[in-house]
Simulated scan of single mutants.
Amino acid sequence: MSETFLPELPQELWRAGKLELAHGVQQSLQVIRIATACLGRFLAEIESRGAKDLYGHGSTASWLAEIAGLSRGEAGAVVKRAIALNPTRALDGTEVPPLAPATAAVAAQGLVGDERIDQILEILKNLPAEISAEERAGAEQILANLAPAAGPRQLAKAEANLQGLLNPDGNEPKDPEPKEPRREITLERRKDGFWKLTGLLDDETGARTAAALEAHAQPRPVDEFGQADL
């Protein structure tokens, strides 16, 4: 990694020309990005050794959140990015390769920032699962080569092109899960005094209701005085 130093600010910055200002911004961005890549390598090593054994924290993200004054979510995003770009080690000591080594290479040179890195990682996640490791590595290399000079739209267009090459038939449409019907009953009184009953019942409730209505519709026995038995 080539050494990059912070630009020396003119004593009277307001006197700086437009080219000097632009160069200062570009150089400062590169320094920030190189430092961020270096931070990621430290975090990946801490993740490999275990934050619990090193610092008594349940995770690398919780430890980083405490020392950096970040929320748990903010720290988690930093650690997740660090693991994706740097090799780590499993519990048995075997090396776990990074998800995006080509992107890590341009990040180490300060040529790409967190936003484009996250976009590349999201694109890689969306690639078809059945493609080969060589195809996935080739796709990542294309994205990494574009990233230093590309914006979000250019990378989104590159994703569309990659999907067209690697998944020309598209994803198979998934049949939606049929929704379970809900039981409902509506009772409405009409103007002529009759009541209108409509509803949707499950099999058991419907059978019981039908039996009850059938029983209610049967002629009622009449006693000796001619009164129906209620």
Score class of each variant (00 low, 15 high):
Ser2His: 06
Thr4Met: 14
Pro7Arg: 11
Pro10Glu: 05
Pro10Val: 12
Gln11Tyr: 05
Gln11Arg: 14
Leu13Phe: 06
Arg15Lys: 14
Arg15Asn: 15
Arg15His: 07
Ala16Pro: 10
Gly17Glu: 00
Gly17Tyr: 04
Leu19Trp: 12
Glu20Phe: 03
Leu21Asn: 03
Ala22Glu: 13
Ala22Pro: 10
His23Phe: 05
His23Ala: 14
Gly24Glu: 11
Gly24Tyr: 01
Gln27Leu: 08
Gln27Arg: 15
Ser28Lys: 06
Ser28Gly: 03
Leu29Phe: 09
Gln30Leu: 07
Cys38Arg: 15
Cys38Met: 12
Leu39Gln: 13
Gly40Cys: 05
Gly40Ile: 01
Phe42Glu: 13
Ala44Gln: 04
Ala44Asp: 00
Ala44Ser: 00
Ala44Arg: 02
Ile46Asn: 05
Glu47Trp: 06
Ser48Thr: 12
Gly50Leu: 02
Gly50Met: 00
Lys52Cys: 06
Lys52Leu: 13
Asp53Met: 01
Asp53Phe: 13
Tyr55Lys: 11
His57Lys: 07
Gly58Glu: 11
Gly58Asn: 05
Ser59Asn: 12
Ser59Ala: 09
Thr60His: 03
Ala61Val: 05
Ser62Glu: 03
Leu64Thr: 11
Glu66Met: 15
Ala68Pro: 06
Ala68Glu: 01
Ala68Thr: 12
Gly69Asn: 10
Ser71Met: 04
Arg72Pro: 07
Gly73Ala: 05
Glu74Gly: 01
Gly76Trp: 07
Val78Lys: 01
Val78His: 11
Val79Glu: 00
Lys80Met: 08
Lys80Asn: 13
Leu85Ile: 08
Pro87Trp: 02
Thr88Gly: 08
Thr88Asp: 02
Arg89Leu: 10
Leu91Phe: 13
Gly93Lys: 03
Thr94Lys: 13
Thr94Arg: 14
Glu95Tyr: 00
Glu95Lys: 10
Pro97Phe: 02
Pro98Val: 07
Ala100Lys: 05
Pro101Gly: 06
Thr103Glu: 09
Ala105Glu: 15
Val106Gln: 01
Val106Phe: 09
Ala108Thr: 11
Ala108Glu: 07
Gly110Glu: 01
Gly113Ser: 05
Gly113Asp: 04
Gly113Tyr: 02
Glu115Gly: 00
Glu115Val: 08
Glu115Phe: 06
Asp118Ser: 09
Ile120Lys: 06
Glu122His: 13
Ile123Asp: 03
Ile123Met: 01
Ile123Asn: 03
Asn126His: 13
Glu135Gly: 10
Ala137Ser: 09
Ala149Pro: 10
Ala150Glu: 04
Arg153His: 13
Gln154Met: 07
Gln154Pro: 10
Leu155Ala: 09
Ala160Gly: 11
Asn161Trp: 08
Leu162Lys: 06
Gly164Met: 10
Asp169Tyr: 15
Asn171Val: 15
Glu172Met: 14
Glu172Gly: 14
Pro173Trp: 10
Asp175Pro: 07
Glu177Ser: 09
Glu177Arg: 15
Pro178His: 13
Ile185Met: 14
Arg189Asp: 08
Arg189Lys: 12
Arg190His: 06
Arg190Leu: 14
Gly193Cys: 03
Lys196Pro: 07
Leu197Gly: 02
Gly199Pro: 10
Leu200Gly: 14
Leu201Lys: 04
Asp203Leu: 09
Asp203Arg: 15
Glu204Ile: 11
Thr209Val: 14
Ala210Ile: 15
Ala211Ser: 12
Leu213Gln: 09
Leu213Met: 08
Glu214Arg: 14
Ala215Ser: 08
His216Gln: 15
His216Glu: 13
Gln218Trp: 08
Val222Met: 00
Val222Trp: 02
Phe225Thr: 13
Leu230Phe: 14
